[in-house]
Amino acid sequence: MIAERLGQLGIVLPHAAAPAANYVPGVVHAGLLHISGQIPFDENGDLIRGRLGEDMTMKEGAAAARRCGIGLLAQMNAVLGDLDKVRRVVKLGVFVASTPNFTDQPKVANGASDLMVEVFGERGRHARSAVGVAALPLGVAVEIDAIIAVDA
């Protein structure tokens, strides 16, 4: 069971973040759960802000991506009611706030990708995009959206 796996990993899911505008956090359609972009909150609920290549290290960026991944797990749980309904993590879209000369967005994205494999095993392996952007909402370092195959 995924809940037991989370416990083994020492992961406590936060409350799923409420939408900040005119959208919903997740939509299930045709066996796929589409999760809106999640931004990183630390364990205290504070935003993780910064820009890679400017005021944030690679390690800090990967940690922020992991926290986005935890937000994705919280949204999956809120929409599905049970993480055991996840059949496969299909794709992550990772946006990294970074300077023009920073080119290690994939290494930052690994923070979330590694988490999905830790939690779901082979079902957590996924396709992915990892792109650099000039700025993200509220000055956060990373934002990640997802497509998840689910049981109906």
Score class of each variant (00 low, 15 high):
A3D: 09
G139D: 11
A17P: 07
N22L: 14
G7R: 10
P40C: 03
R125E: 13
V89K: 01
A64R: 00
L80E: 08
R49I: 03
F102E: 10
H34Y: 12
D84T: 14
D104T: 11
N110W: 10
H29S: 13
S98Q: 15
V86G: 07
R87H: 07
V133C: 12
R67A: 08
Y23I: 13
L47N: 03
D55C: 13
V27E: 10
M56K: 04
V90C: 04
N77Q: 12
P106T: 10
A62M: 06
A149D: 05
R125P: 02
I148L: 05
D145C: 09
I48D: 01
I39A: 11
E54I: 07
R88P: 08
I147F: 05
A3L: 08
G26N: 07
H34I: 12
D145Q: 04
L13T: 04
L72N: 06
V131C: 08
G132D: 02
A134I: 05
T57R: 06
A152K: 11
V24K: 14
S129D: 15
V133A: 12
P106F: 11
L52F: 08
G53Y: 06
G10I: 11
V117A: 11
G61R: 00
A141L: 03
F102G: 14
V24P: 05
A21S: 15
G93I: 12
D46W: 06
D55I: 00
A130T: 11
P19G: 04
H29I: 08
D82A: 14
V108G: 02
L115G: 01
R125A: 14
G26V: 09
A146H: 01
A17C: 09
G61C: 08
D114F: 11
N44C: 08
D46A: 15
G69L: 04
K107A: 11
G50M: 00
F95D: 12
S36N: 10
G139P: 04
V79D: 04
E60W: 05
P25F: 06
E4N: 06
E4Q: 08
V131S: 10
V131Y: 13
M58N: 15
C68F: 03
A97M: 06
N110M: 15
V79H: 06
G121I: 07
V150P: 00
A30P: 00
V117E: 10
S98G: 11
L47M: 12
A65T: 11
D114C: 07
V90L: 07
R128S: 10
Q38M: 04
S36V: 12
G124Q: 08
N77S: 08
R128N: 05
A20W: 09
E54W: 09
P19D: 04
M58S: 09
E143A: 15
V12Q: 15
V119W: 01
L83W: 02
A135E: 14
A64E: 06
A17E: 13
G53I: 01
